[in-house]
Write a protein that binds this DNA or RNA. Structure first.
Lengths: 186, 186
DNA sequence: CCTATTAGTATCGAATCGAAACCAATAGGA
DNA sequence: TCCTATTGGTTTCGATTCGATACTAATAGG
């Protein structure tokens, strides 16, 4: 039997494969990451600042990356009417379509071979490591809105849910999506 | 209980954390990766070509990266006497010392919290995914020399081991290290 | 109002990357 | 022995990424 391989080395090789793959498909690695994030973020989280927090890079880099995505017609930018310093980002139809050619899909394919048990175990282990690393770095978890301690489930069935932090109603899709502000419910 | 998070997304976030961390400590991400590889490779595998195969980037990028490491005094380059096209790379004392400040050590730290069972499981799952991805891409596994089908264990105790592919004797440290040519024994 | 803070943008220089051109040593015939 | 093909590396190019820093504009808080 082969020796147990060190986890850090396996993770580094995985990261490298992911990085190399991400040069394909007409976008650059960071552009793919930003586009992917924007497709999964709720409306409070589709801003340059949120992308910055998610990626953990500087504002300048994000600003350039988003400009590139806008130039390619994959996203639109509009000044936030509530706070006119802010910028609201939305995916265009082309942007959504582009994600179907996301080179990172191969990771998904590679894990589909595992048993459901193994996948669940792997997901849990990775999540533990990621959350620990994020915590050490003061980063946000970016969990699903509906798992947040500020999430108030709609009382009358059919009514919108509610965010007690932002004081805003939440559509069904907002509450499924990930959020900058998310903090795990106690 | 929180939902099971998608494995690809967790892996991408991990890769991003790793990439961001790797800008610290005086080297750049690719420089760290190359240096790390060179510290773990046996003498047949410390060449620009092997680094190219390991990282999966182009020759040009590797050439530049190695020049930078040489300029910083972390490695030495010498033309291979057997095949004078080739270049033999070795870590300097400074290079070895530099690795003690490898920012990727935090990954190691983060996994130390897990139980030994979970770590073994995680290592096995990751290895499966990495090997599958590498195979799809025509990449080499870079396993330990002694696990290779060309590895011939020393018959008289104390004598050197032997590589039947390259026709060369192997020191103990050579056979522990990783090798470009490694192919898993049947 | 006046200052501090916050959200983004713009600019700079170094590193990274793929692509392509290039060079020198080796290999493999004819 | 030549002659060509291949192989191992380097060089150069242009786009992207990135941290750092300086900057602009809108909001917030006395």
């Amino acid at each position: 039997m082969a020796d147990k391989k060190p986890i850090p080395i396996l993770m580094e090789r995985l990261a490298r494969i992911l990085l190399n793959d991400s040069h394909a498909g007409g976008l650059k690695p960071t552009q793919w990451e930003a586009l992917r994030y924007l497709s999964r973020a709720n409306r409070f989280s589709r801003s340059p600042g949120a992308v910055t927090a998610y990626l953990g890079v500087t504002k300048g880099t994000v600003s350039q990356t988003l400009s590139a995505l806008e130039r390619k017609g994959l996203i639109t930018k509009a000044t936030d009417q509530a706070d006119r310093r802010g910028v609201q980002i939305n995916l265009t139809r082309q942007g959504a379509k582009m994600l179907q050619h996301d080179p990172a899909i191969s990771i998904e394919t590679a894990t589909r071979q595992m048993t459901a048990i193994d996948r669940a175990q792997l997901s849990a282990s990775l999540e533990g490591v990621v959350l620990r690393l994020l915590r050490d770095r003061g980063g946000r978890p970016f969990g699903a809105c509906k798992t947040c301690r500020h999430f108030k489930k709609s009382a009358p069935k059919g009514a919108p849910h509610f965010c007690t932090l932002l004081g805003e109603p939440l559509t069904a899709s907002d509450s499924q999506a990930i959020c900058v502000e998310q903090e795990n419910a106690a």
